[in-house]
């Protein structure tokens, strides 16, 4: 495995910083049905699906750390949970390589759910005394629905932003192979 290109790293850093700033400065201030969208797990999920587990894990850790710093939260909580989210999304791509159009939607919803549950668990482990109330569950579910709805556009934007810097996009490679006739099953028959 070769090291990621500097151009890709630069874009990932820009994406992470921009995403967290937009999240805290704008998206967090847009209440929808009493909850907010959360871009962090969606960004991490998209990087995991596009770049693999290693990049996904590192991106998740970095974004989580940045979120914790910017939001003045306990350092290490978001980074640990988003690390797992990014790594899991990357492993999904490496192990299954799902191709469906709605994959980002499903993975985005699972990533959001995993982030919400993981974050809540960490808070409880750290001694948060907040009870599991109906309001908390409702907010979590609402965020899950909103994130599932915006997962596809977020994934599309991230993919478009990184496309030029991605060294090996399996889908691009597959399309190129079919059009050139190199790996097409039709050409072999």
């Amino acid at each position: 495995m070769s090291s990621p290109a500097p151009q890709l790293i630069g874009r990932l850093v820009a994406l992470g910083i921009g995403g967290v700033v937009v999240q805290t400065a704008a998206v967090a201030q847009l209440p929808i049905a009493g909850a907010n969208a959360d871009l962090s797990p969606l960004l991490v999920m998209a990087i995991g699906l596009l770049c693999g587990s290693l990049a996904g894990g590192c991106f998740g850790f970095a974004v989580g750390l940045f979120v914790d710093i910017v939001s003045f939260q306990t350092l290490g909580v978001s980074s640990l949970v988003l690390l797992a989210v990014g790594y899991g999304a990357g492993r999904l791509r490496e192990a299954r390589d799902p191709e469906g159009t709605l994959v980002p939607l499903a993975v985005g919803a699972i990533a959001t759910l995993a982030f919400s549950i993981g974050f809540a668990l960490m808070q409880f482990l750290l001694g948060a005394s907040a009870p599991v109330s109906w309001a908390l569950l409702r907010q979590t579910l609402t965020t899950l629905v909103i994130n599932a709805l915006i997962a596809l556009p977020v994934y599309a934007v991230v993919r478009r932003f990184l496309l030029a810097a991605l060294p090996e996009d399996p889908r691009r490679r597959r399309r190129r192979a079919y059009t050139t006739g190199g790996l097409s099953p039709l050409s072999r028959s």
Binding site: F61, L75, G76, S79, L80, L83
Partner: peptide, 17 residues
């Protein structure tokens, strides 16, 4: 790398607390 990042997170958590 995964183990390192997890360890970093836990160290950060512990140190922060």
């Amino acid at each position: 790398v995964l183990g390192l990042l997890v360890a970093c997170s836990l160290i950060l958590l512990t140190a922060y607390f």
